[in-house]
Amino acid sequence: MNWDWFIYFAILSVLFWIIGSWKAFKEAKKSACTFTALGLILFGTFIILLWFSLERPPLRTMGETRLWYSFFLPFAGLVTYIRWRYKWILSFSTILSIVFICINILKPEIHNKALMPALQSPWFAPHVIIYMFAYAMLGASAITGGYLLWIKKSLSDTKEIFLCDNLVYVGLSFMTLGMLTGALWAKEAWGHYWSWDPKETWAAVTWFSYLSYIHLRIGMHNKRRVSLYILLLSFVFLQMCWWGINYLPSAQGSSIHTYNMN
């Protein structure tokens, strides 16, 4: 299995996700879940086959991490739909996943078997996978926040903003776990848990930003619109932490996290 097969798996997976989204709007919950799950199984199969082909976790390049993000977004949408029955979440998560899939099709990264020594660690795969799942959950919260602010516009329905809260709780919990596994990995690979590398600095900024959202929601229930803007700002910080850092001059040649640009 090589990267040339990605487009075929992606098209079929997206087709299943679109059908699942349509079924959700038709109030056919069982069919919506089934088609979305089929798309996830198909997309996940490609990831597993690519893993075997590369003889390493497909987590090194930006394209490979986008692959996981494209998988976890519909997964997060499915979990949210099953738990809270918001039928629009499947459509929104599918659209966002399609964006990242298209980026991977138009701008594929280098996918080879090479893996630098620092990445040959048992912490590598769990750290990145946990982070990608956290990013997907927080992406779903951003989708929900944007929906409330600019599409629905009414914040009187407490259930939907509580949906944002729950997604952030899960996403931030996994982000925290990802930071902890990253610290253990850094100690093993470089001899220290934290070095305020540009990537680590932005990770801290992102973490505190989402924590601010939680504190605002707990302490000031009536500031819903302000809290949602903070949520969207936090998502911007998350994008900076994930891939924007690679374009900062301060990270070029000095950051220990720029290996994924190779």
Results as ranks from 00 to 15, higher is better:
Asn2Ala: 11
Trp3Pro: 01
Asp4Phe: 14
Asp4His: 14
Phe9Pro: 02
Ser13Trp: 14
Phe16Pro: 11
Lys23Phe: 14
Phe25His: 15
Phe25Gln: 14
Phe25Gly: 04
Lys26Ile: 00
Glu27Ser: 11
Glu27Asn: 11
Lys29Met: 04
Lys29His: 08
Lys29Arg: 13
Ala32Cys: 12
Ala32Gln: 10
Thr34Gly: 11
Thr36Met: 13
Leu40Met: 11
Leu42Glu: 02
Leu42Thr: 03
Thr45His: 03
Phe46Val: 06
Ile47Glu: 09
Ile48Thr: 02
Ile48Gly: 05
Ile48Pro: 06
Trp51Arg: 12
Trp51Gln: 07
Ser53Cys: 02
Arg56Gln: 10
Pro57Phe: 03
Pro58Val: 01
Leu59Asp: 09
Arg60Ser: 05
Arg60His: 04
Thr61Lys: 05
Gly63Tyr: 06
Arg66Met: 15
Tyr69Lys: 04
Leu73Gln: 05
Phe75Asn: 08
Phe75Gln: 10
Phe75Ile: 10
Phe75Arg: 10
Ile82Glu: 13
Leu90Lys: 07
Leu90His: 06
Ser91Ile: 07
Ser91Met: 13
Thr94Phe: 15
Ser97Leu: 14
Ser97Gly: 08
Ile103His: 08
Lys107Thr: 10
His111Met: 07
Asn112Ala: 04
Lys113Gln: 15
Ala114Phe: 09
Ala114Lys: 06
Leu115Pro: 05
Pro117Tyr: 12
Ala118Asn: 08
Ser121Tyr: 07
Ser121Ala: 09
Pro122Leu: 07
Trp123Glu: 01
Trp123Pro: 00
Phe124Pro: 02
Ile130Phe: 05
Tyr131His: 03
Ala134His: 06
Tyr135Cys: 03
Tyr135Gly: 03
Ala136Ile: 06
Met137Asp: 01
Leu138Cys: 01
Gly139Asn: 11
Ala140Asn: 12
Ala140Glu: 06
Ala142Thr: 00
Leu149Trp: 02
Ile151Phe: 13
Ile151Asn: 10
Lys152Trp: 06
Ser154Pro: 12
Asp157Gln: 13
Thr158Pro: 00
Lys159Tyr: 04
Lys159Cys: 02
Phe162Trp: 09
Cys164Tyr: 06
Asn166Leu: 07
Asn166Ala: 05
Leu167Tyr: 06
Leu167Asp: 00
Val168Gly: 01
Val170Ala: 15
Gly178Lys: 13
Gly178Glu: 08
Thr181Lys: 09
Thr181His: 03
Ala183Gly: 14
Trp185Asn: 04
Glu188Pro: 09
Trp190Phe: 10
Gly191Pro: 10
Gly191Gln: 09
His192Ile: 12
Tyr193Ala: 14
Trp196Ile: 01
Asp197Ile: 10
Lys199Trp: 08
Lys199Phe: 08
Thr201Pro: 02
Ala203Glu: 08
Ala203Arg: 05
Thr206Ile: 03
Trp207Ala: 03
Trp207Gln: 05
Phe208Gln: 06
Phe208Glu: 01
Ser209Gln: 11
Leu211Pro: 02
His215Pro: 05
His215Trp: 11
Arg217Asn: 06
Met220Phe: 15
Asn222Ser: 15
Lys223Glu: 10
Arg224Asp: 07
Tyr229Cys: 04
Leu231Phe: 01
Leu231Gly: 03
Leu233Asp: 02
Val236Gln: 05
Gln239Tyr: 01
Met240His: 03
Cys241Arg: 00
Trp243Val: 13
Gly244Ala: 11
Asn246Ser: 13
Tyr247Glu: 10
Tyr247Leu: 14
Leu248Ala: 04
Pro249Ser: 05
Gly253Asp: 10
Ser254Arg: 15
Ser254Glu: 13
Met261Arg: 10
